[in-house]
């Protein structure tokens, strides 16, 4: 079933009493089984959108239909329970996870041997893997990823993205990935939604048909296809400026 997101209005009240409008007459349809990347500058409302879809924020006018069942979510911070070890964090999110599935999942995210570690003992990279593994553990119908690679160094970022790319194609699920990194979107998504500064508007959409596994080689070509929406700066790195 298609996920329909319609937000007629969403605003935050600021400390100084004024309002910051994030969405106005915003609508987005996500086809069943589609992997959709929300690409836009920081503060454009990507996280707000995911929180609304997840049902964590109900202070908006509009609707998300159908209300998602079996939701897996990865927040910007890992948000693991610090008093439970990695394996228990996964088990608590997914009580029906059996031991062989658990081991398989830990292996898939290169967490072998860390099942008994507590989150305080993990590096950020490992904690993020655990958070991703937790979201996959419940075999979600809808997966929401909010900047899942934020504040990782480049090598870790790429490694984790490759792991995620493998897992995301392994099972049918609908996914929304919020990111400000064009390469993340190009390598992971079937469709990229380009968002403007708040109040967020859809500037355009780009479908990517090439299979995920082959995209690494044609990344330059893919980047070029996105150029009408974004100008990639001369250094060729991931930081993007919105084209005016």
């Amino acid at each position: 079933m298609t996920l329909e997101i319609a937000i007629s209005r969403k605003a935050y009240r600021l400390a100084n009493g004024r309002e910051r409008l994030v969405f106005e007459d915003f609508a987005l349809e996500v086809a069943n089984g589609a992997i959709v990347a929300l690409l836009g500058p920081s503060g454009c409302g990507k996280s707000s959108l995911l929180r609304i879809v997840a049902g964590l924020d109900r202070a908006f006018s509009g609707a998300v239909t159908p209300a998602p069942r079996r939701l897996g979510m990865v927040f910007q911070e890992p948000r693991l329970l610090p008093w439970r070890n990695v394996a228990d964090n996964l088990r608590l999110a997914a009580p029906r996870l059996d031991e062989s599935k658990l081991a398989e999942l830990l292996a898939a995210f290169e967490l072998e041997g860390h099942g008994g570690d507590y989150p305080g003992q993990l590096s950020l990279g490992l904690a993020r893997r655990a958070a991703l593994a937790r979201a996959f553990a419940i075999e979600p119908e809808l997966l929401l990823l909010d900047e899942p690679f934020a504040s990782l160094d480049r090598a870790l970022h790429q490694r984790l993205r490759a792991l995620l790319s493998e897992r995301i194609g392994a099972r049918k699920m609908t996914a929304l990935i919020a990111t400000h990194d064009l390469d993340d979107a190009l390598l992971l998504a079937d469709e990229i939604i380009f968002l403007d500064h708040a109040p967020a508007r859809i500037r355009g959409a780009l479908s990517i048909a090439e299979p995920r596994g082959t995209r690494d080689e044609i990344l330059t070509k893919l980047r070029a296809s996105a150029e009408i929406y974004y100008m990639i700066d001369a250094g060729g790195n991931d930081s993007l400026e919105a084209a005016s």
């Binding site: 929180r51 927040f75 911070e77 948000r79 937790r134």
Partner: peptide, 16 residues
Amino acid sequence: PALDEMAQAFAFPRWR
């Protein structure tokens, strides 16, 4: 509140 949201997103039942 961050952990509270996590529990809500993953639909932790009340007791858990």
